[in-house]
């Protein structure tokens, strides 16, 4: 609810809509956008607030390390996911921020805190930090051996046909892209470098999503269940958040998006 009220904050860059989105867009959203109001900016504002005011148990905020207005994070998102020496692995934005909070701000690595981070802080903060790379090109390098290996794994996952539908990411988003599954057009995130508008606001469920959310949901919704058909029991859960599989697919898609201009928060169906 709070989101709805505060999204009156003005937008600077404006919203670039694809023709398809513009066509299907419900009227109330058209009017909002014409007035320069983008619901994703409520998340951005909330993230900015956390960035400066959310104190860890040791008194540090994000701004303590990364500067007022995240001045030291300009361009950081353009290179993610990437290998980080301090945590010894390849991280996407969701994992990177969580590591900062537990490692440097004194938050516990407990289930409870991770849950709170996932539900409350993660998306607004990711939106804010990502927006600091707006106008810059996606530039994911594969310099580190761990990055190279994870990229290969991501590419393999993209083509892996599995589950009771015999689907893969590639079936829907490469082979069938531009076709309709029911009424829904299938996007092509690789060819069209769609990573540029993530994190993105989805008006179909009135929420801001990071790419973690998107990848995990696509897996769950379309790909897998085990055992005999039983709709309650047998849909396999999504890959868990922050898992290697999710980061690998992100790395694959974002590297394919190199060169595209980042424009966050996006706005899609």
């Amino acid at each position: 609810m709070r989101k709805k009220i505060i999204f009156a904050s003005a937008i600077a860059g404006g919203v670039v809509l694809t023709a398809a989105v513009a066509q299907q867009l419900p009227d109330q959203y058209k009017q909002l956008l014409e007035l320069g109001m983008h619901p994703g900016y409520a998340y951005l504002d909330e993230g900015e607030d956390y960035f400066h005011n959310l104190k860890g148990p040791n008194g540090k905020t994000c701004a303590s390390c990364h500067g007022q207005d995240a001045s030291k994070l300009v361009g950081a998102y353009a290179h993610m996911p990437r290998y980080y020496k301090d945590i010894g692995k390849v991280a996407d934005i969701d994992i990177r921020m969580l590591s900062c909070m537990t490692k440097y701000m004194g938050f516990p690595k407990s289930k409870d805190f991770i849950k709170k981070y996932t539900k409350k802080y993660r998306v607004p903060l990711a939106t804010y930090v990502a927006s600091k790379s707006n106008g810059m090109k996606i530039d994911v390098k594969l310099d580190d051996p761990q990055e190279k290996e994870l990229y290969k794994y991501g590419e393999k996952l993209w083509w892996t046909r599995s589950g009771a539908r015999d689907f893969s990411c590639g079936i829907c988003h490469t082979v069938l892209s531009d076709k309709r599954i029911r009424q829904q057009a299938l996007p092509n995130p690789v060819r069209d470098k769609l990573y540029k508008h993530w994190p993105t606001y989805r008006y179909s469920n009135d929420k801001m999503w990071t790419m973690e959310d998107r990848v995990r949901s696509c897996f769950k919704a379309f790909l897998l269940y085990v055992n005999k058909w039983d709709k309650k029991k047998d849909w396999i859960k999504k890959p868990p958040p922050y898992s290697k599989e999710v980061v690998a697919i992100e790395l694959y898609m974002k590297h394919k998006g190199n060169g595209a201009i980042i424009n966050v928060p996006g706005f899609i169906r």
Partner: peptide, 15 residues
């Protein structure tokens, strides 16, 4: 099994 292990079984072992 952890959630990630279960997921990998569904994806690869069951393939």
């Amino acid at each position: 099994l952890s959630a990630e292990e279960k997921f990998k079984i569904a994806l690869f072992k069951n393939q």
